[in-house]
Design a binder for these strands. Sequence first.
DNA 1: GCCAACGTTGGC
DNA 2: GCCAACGTTGGC
Length: 149
Amino acid sequence: MKSEPHEFSFDDLVKAPGKRTPWFGVRNYQARNFMRDQMQPDDPVFFYHSSCPEPGIAGIAEVASPPYPDATQFDVKSKYYDPAATPEIPRWFHVDVKMAKKTPFVSLAELRCHRELAGMRLLQKGNRLSITPVDPREWKFITEKLLKL
DNA sequence: GCCAACGTTGGC
DNA sequence: GCCAACGTTGGC
């Protein structure tokens, strides 16, 4: 899951109440569908910093709730307000995310160095999705070989 | 700031 | 349903 660290960094998650946060603000259908349809409580997540001087994996989090409507879609004051959404028929769903493990930083440049990760969706040319699935083999390689957990 | 690669919008 | 125009993402 990508986050811009000047908006919300992994350290912000560590400092958040309960070390958790709703993953609000996703306004892309594919990314929404991953949260709504694919993610389960306790699923592990790489917390990725994007749009910053050094993009990369900043830590490990986990899914901490079932999917539920993103409250910001109903909030006219929010930049994530969606006039087409109503509480009766919400459009945007998200999960809560909880800090799981502080890890060494793994930069995007490093991720790109390993042929084992060449197929990783996050690294594909043109990928802009803020949430992408991680193949179990890719998860294993990163956690065992790069993070040495 | 540039720009490739998408995704969304809206007229037809 | 098509597709041009426009907006966004995100690495560089």
